[in-house]
Design a protein around this nucleic acid. Structure first.
Lengths: 133, 133
DNA sequence: CGTTATAGTGATAGCCGTTCTCATTTAGAA
DNA sequence: TTCTAAATGAGAACGGCTATCACTATAACG
């Protein structure tokens, strides 16, 4: 276990991430902080985000454009997301079915160290209503 | 409909992609072509790959590292992939379990038009053996 | 308290995949 | 053959991210 010091930068990243409504990019987060008067560096934002992901305090996923997005995580442990492609609203999902399936399929093909990307994008009820209005 | 001309470059990309065993990056494909004596440019490889994806002749997905990978598509219609992160060898999967799960979860949360990204990355038997040797 | 070792920081350079630019080439129609 | 614009290719540019390294400040210890 590496030593971890408490810095105001780490806390600032944590706080700003928590304030964000959905998934945010590291750069957006950095900009928010700078806009708020912080002198925090971009590299530090990246480092702390990576740290938060490692400890399970934050989630990360790739946007379809290949950018890494982050979100402060409510649920501990492994889980997936259902994301509204219109408003970005996110639901956290746990999916035993999927976990079992990945393991089984991996084993059947002789693959090990299975990593899986399972994210659902859809249109939430509110956005669907708004669109048809 | 935009005009499409037939160039030897397009055909070369198609052919080399078909020869590849699994998912390949644009850069790898370009390198293969150059190694084979072709004078094709990198930008052209990118352009033609994008074109093939658009017409459904090729699949594309993001690796966990954020790189775009391409593959000439055997199965028509919706399917998933199990990909060796070392050699790129790929198995196409159909997964009724997963399809059902996505629909159910979407409905439970009032989401519609569910799109899902489900791709598995692992280490195939051959690469695992090679690594421990 | 003050001292001190070192984890953490921040500016910036660098890396890597991808896209853009633009002069040149060439497919395909006339 | 002639013509025109789609397509090409070399390299510049771009954007996200990581590495570097001198400096700062946390927190353990005296």
């Amino acid at each position: 276990m590496q030593p971890k010091r408490n810095t105001w930068q780490r806390e600032a990243v944590r706080a700003t991430l928590a304030e964000a409504h959905g998934f945010v990019s590291a750069q957006q987060l950095h900009q928010s902080l700078r806009d708020g008067g912080s002198t925090i560096g971009l590299a530090t934002v990246y480092r702390n985000l990576a740290g938060l992901v490692e400890t399970g305090e934050a989630d990360s996923l790739q946007s379809p454009e290949g950018e890494n997005l982050f979100r402060s995580c409510a649920t501990q442990g492994h889980h997936h997301h259902l994301i509204c492609r219109s408003c970005g609203d996110t639901r956290e999902l746990s999916a035993t079915v999927v976990e079992e399936w990945t393991q089984r399929v991996g084993a059947e093909h002789g693959f090990s160290e299975i990593e899986h990307v399972v994210d659902l994008f859809g249109l939430c009820a509110r956005c669907r209503a708004a669109r048809s209005a």
